[in-house]
Amino acid sequence: MYPDQFEFHRADSVSEAVELLADNPDAELIAGGHSLLPTMKSGLASPDALVDISDLDGLSGVERNGEVTHLGAMTTYATVADDDDLWEDATVVAEAASQVGDRQVRNRGTVGGNIAHADPASDLPAAMLAANATVHVHGPDGERSVEIDDFFQGMYATAAGEEGVVTGIDVPEEGENTASAYVKKPAPASGYALVGVAARLTFDGDEVTDARIAANGVMDHGTRLPAAEDAIEGESVDADAVAVAGDAAGDSLDEYMVMEDQQASQEFRLQLLSAYTERALETVGERAGHM
């Protein structure tokens, strides 16, 4: 279909983008456009103005600062998925980026746009949660950092707020004893996650000393799975422990808010959550075994 009319602003700086957003409550930020344009074309969204930040220098690219990898907000999924170092340093993020949409979508869609949009069924939120990322937000009150655990607040709602611009994401390097993975059950039509599970485990020998496990597609936003984390911490990644963690995956979730659509009922989503939590943990376990 065809988008409605809008004004188009190409921001020359992040501050200008923030100002434009503040001045026009019906304006939307456009990064890669792969979340926004489809809703505009279908007539669901009709913003008065778009603020384009795709030309801003410094917002795209992957930089390593010591033990942290900084992903500029306008870095495309393809750039992330093709970054060999990131596959080493934060496997779960690279793996999730490699599973977003399709090749063409990955060439245009951006990591900043992804997490700012906060689609509950997209792939990056859980990966960023598992990776324990930090989000940089530039808002009307200046710049701030938001811990990823505080970032996702609801369906399409984040701590960046309506007027904040996500400028980048810091992903800490997985230590020597840490491994991670992202596994996903895509909806056959859209490719969005019916369930996607991201897991990052830190080991002392065989024993898991720290677990960060999160899911996409299950709740109205990317969500940590504390019950699964508790279940695997202190254990080794063997079949029994994995099964227990898989069973526990849904325990800490508010069942009322579990997603349901014609693709999968709440009950089946929780079943997939268990199965894919197991697969994620098994994959991490295998990867850790090769360390």
């Binding site: 489809p38 279908s42 909806a187 056959p188 039509a189 859209s190 014609q262």
Partner: peptide
């Protein structure tokens, strides 16, 4: 057999109204 079906709700609204919702098989399906 595996993916497709035009789904309507009780009011006759087609709820598989786009290729995001109606699963035309992809290359790896």
């Amino acid at each position: 057999a595996l993916f497709e079906g035009a789904e309507y709700d009780d009011n006759g609204q087609l709820v598989t109204g786009s290729m995001q919702d109606y699963a035309v098989p992809k290359s790896f399906h």
